[in-house]
């Protein structure tokens, strides 16, 4: 009787592992294919799909790019909690231009439900997740995006992946009227795996736009990416109940404190990092950084606390520039 249950479960687990292994093996191919131009020549031209919004950007003192976490399937489908966060931040800082149309887990900003062969499958998984019926399958979205974070953090693939995402961010910045060489600060905000992509793209955004780049990590899981050396300052928000950022600290030797001469530890020594503890936030779900129902002992919601900290950081940067 036990065998009747355990044996199928064992084979199911084995099948799951095999699927993850194949996904892992194929995960760098999207980046490599794009870079090698096998499908089409790597597009070097910067393309504007709409003219820069001059009226809005004349007053801009700061640009912020928001990169979602590994649960997302596209930049357009971010959760309502994240939208609340971005709206509240915009209300706090009217002169801030917020960009959130870049999907950080695709080198060409191609959403999982965009122009790709398995888009129907990702859309189906996403839909079932919305109805709460496909929570197990939705793990595939996490795995797929997590593997792209690993691609970004791998020194062999990372430069190609990160420059591709940086180009997409750059195009979005230009669409929003960013003037290269103007010196207007750019803050890249990354939640969870978005934190690694933020660090990875920093170098190329800095070089392409001659801009000061700041990274605001919201429970970011970050590798030992050399892009950290091009970041003016990294602000890392880490809730006391969020253990996920530890994964990056453990898995990437460049972040081990006793290896003094790595890019990460060099940046740390130079005082380019601040860890901010906003409260007892968890990584994702209820009681995370964007929860507007959970409150701190002083009655402030977790969402309001996150907005307060990040708007404070951006205001401080603006005052110091």
């Amino acid at each position: 009787m036990i065998d009747l249950v355990i044996t199928p479960l064992f084979y199911l687990a084995l099948l799951g592992l095999l699927l993850i292994f194949i996904m892992a093996l194929l995960s760098p191919l999207e980046t490599l294919n794009w870079w090698a131009g096998w499908n089409h020549e790597a597009d070097k031209e910067i393309v504007l799909t709409s003219p820069p919004d001059q009226t809005r950007t004349e007053k801009a003192t700061h640009y912020a790019v928001y990169l979602t976490a590994i649960g997302g399937i596209s930049a357009a489908d971010i959760s309502s909690r994240e939208r609340h966060f971005l709206n509240d931040l915009q209300e706090q800082l009217p002169h801030l231009v917020i960009i959130h149309d870049v999907f950080p887990f695709s080198v060409t900003n191609n959403p999982l439900n965009g122009e790709r062969q398995l888009s129907w499958l990702w859309q189906k998984i996403h839909n079932s997740r919305m109805k709460k019926s496909g929570l197990i399958l939705s793990g595939l979205i996490f795995v797929r995006n997590l593997l792209q974070v690993a691609v970004s953090g791998d020194p062999r693939y990372g430069p190609m992946y990160n420059v591709g995402v940086a180009k997409e961010i750059g195009e979005s910045l230009l669409r929003q009227g960013y003037v290269p060489g103007s010196g207007i600060p750019i803050s890249v905000m990354g939640w969870s795996g978005g934190g690694q992509i933020a660090i990875g793209t920093a170098r190329y955004l800095h070089e392409a736009f001659e801009a000061p780049i700041y990274v605001i990590s919201i429970g970011g899981v970050m590798a030992d990416d050399p892009g950290i050396l091009y970041v003016e300052h990294l602000y890392h928000l880490n809730g006391t109940k969020d253990k996920f950022p530890k994964v990056g600290e453990i898995l990437y030797p460049g972040r081990w404190p006793f290896l003094k001469y790595t890019a990460w530890n060099q940046a740390k020594r130079n005082g380019k990092m601040s860890v901010i503890v906003p409260g007892p936030m968890v990584h994702t779900g209820r009681h995370d950084y964007f929860d507007h129902k959970a409150t701190l002992p002083n009655g402030q919601s977790y969402l309001d606390k996150t907005v307060e900290i990040i708007s404070g950081i951006i205001s401080d940067i603006d005052n110091s520039e």
Partner: peptide, 24 residues
């Protein structure tokens, strides 16, 4: 090397962005 090729690509983006600034 990959890094050199990526740097070449970044300078092309840099030039394109600057040209765009000039056009604007």
């Amino acid at each position: 090397s990959t890094q050199d090729l990526v740097e070449e690509y970044v300078s092309e983006i840099h030039e394109a962005a600057n040209e765009m600034r000039g056009d604007t």
